[in-house]
Design a protein around this nucleic acid. Structure first.
Lengths: 253, 253
DNA sequence: GAGGCGTACGACGTCTGACGTCCTATGCTT
DNA sequence: AAGCATAGGACGTCAGACGTCGTACGCCTC
């Protein structure tokens, strides 16, 4: 009856899976690995960590969801790209869940997108150079062409907003921009099946570039405002039209 | 030899685990579940989804990492809180990984924290009311007391920055503030073992409140700047002092 | 009869072993 | 030399058993 007195309130046995998770992270840190570097195979991990394959695999699934580990079937495991996919997945689901009743979360996502670009307006206007303007203008041209043909231009749109942030050379900001764009576009179809006024949107992007070219911070911010205005309006319209009429549920069950 | 012709380039068999993941998410959406609502047990999921327990469990580990599903040992499974823990975990690891050589990522995290508060300066100054000022001032008092006793006040610091964002009533912004704060504080010990000039930091917070009370947007932004200034400076100092001397590695292995 | 303790059951956690699928590489065939 | 066939390594899936955690029911004690 060896009475190993129980630890504090929290679980006495630190879950095996959790331990393995931490040890794999520690392994990456300890060996200074970079994204893409190979990791030990499952069987090796099982041995060296003294855990069963189940525990190791479940730990890896957690790390995989966070893009800390990347698994390639048939190849092996590698250090992940440490992107923000987890944020995107998580937020996208939250938006979908809240979309049953209202679109508040989607509205907040759009608000954050706008905040990022407007909050950095001064830095951006100062940092953008001719090559950037040319590339941005080229994207706007593509958008216009596609809009006139009645097609969409999601890829150009994403590229535009990423490129806009590029001169800052701040990875995190660029990735956040991409992440929130992804969430937005991933759930946009829920609003209206491509009701986007293509031409109008393309013109809004053009105005952003024009203002930046003139190094006019105020105009730049106004252009951003004008870009997101229609989006918000569309959201509000959708709220009023369908509202909680999606299903007869007036409020909380 | 029933030859079911292979699908497109990408994996012909959509991984079972992946399917289960999507189906669980769909289940939550379809039934309009909210955070905290109970989910079917593992065994029920295995039956209804026709998958083995391993696949179901691995799928759940993924959803658990994204805080879409919460597992309570001995109790059962529930809809998660849909927080931003995944972002925190992911970013924190990235900061640790980059900390071996430089602290660029940590610097970027701090930059985003600053961007959030400065970018919303106008809205915040307009939205803050007396009760907020009082609560914020109370936190500053606590900070000062603790600082004078030579103790730290991480909890008060976090509460301060969250409360600052509260009047906006934008959940996402508040959660992002908390998330980036968490990342920052989670990795701060790597910089210097609580070298924080407590008193100075507390005063910086006081100045933020004072500026907001005067409804002075410019002063508010300046106070934010002054708050993060020392933090950045500490970071730069640490970079110069220890630099890549953490271990003798001059550069990439 | 009220309170406390022990057992039974449900649900998640871990382990083991086997087989399927994907990819690569080796070596034979043409 | 080019192409195919086979063997091996590594991840994916399945099945069954046992351990741990919590709860609830029921027995025992007072």
């Amino acid at each position: 009856m060896a009475l190993d007195f129980p630890g504090p309130a929290t679980g006495r046995h630190p879950l095996r899976r959790q331990e393995v998770t931490e040890q794999i992270k520690a392994f990456i840190l300890r060996n200074h690995l970079k994204p893409g570097d190979p990791l030990p195979t499952e069987s090796v991990l099982c041995e060296s960590l003294g855990a069963s394959r189940s525990s190791v695999r479940e730990a890896i699934k957690t790390l995989s969801a966070l893009d800390i580990v990347e698994v390639r079937h048939g190849h092996g495991m590698y250090v992940g790209r440490l992107s923000l996919v987890a944020l995107v997945e998580s937020l996208a689901f939250r938006v979908q869940l809240s979309s049953r009743d209202d679109f508040t979360v989607l509205g907040e996502v759009i608000g954050v997108r706008q905040l990022l670009e407007q909050g950095l307006a001064a830095s951006l206007v100062a940092a953008l150079e001719e090559p950037h303007f040319d590339a941005l203008a080229a994207l706007v041209s593509e958008m216009r062409e596609l809009a006139d043909k009645g097609e969409t231009f999601v890829e150009q749109d994403r590229a535009f907003h990423l490129l806009l942030m590029e001169p800052l050379k701040i990875d995190l900001v660029q990735q956040l921009t991409g992440a929130f764009w992804d969430v937005h576009s991933m759930v946009a179809p829920l609003l209206a099946p491509s009701t986007a006024d293509g031409r109008e949107t393309a013109d809004a992007h053009a105005e952003i570039v024009a203002a930046a070219r003139r190094r006019d911070v105020a105009a730049f911010q106004a252009a951003i405002e004008a870009h997101y205005g229609p989006v918000r309006k569309q959201l509000a319209t959708h709220l009023r039209d369908s509202g909680n009429a999606v299903d007869g549920r007036p409020e909380g069950r």
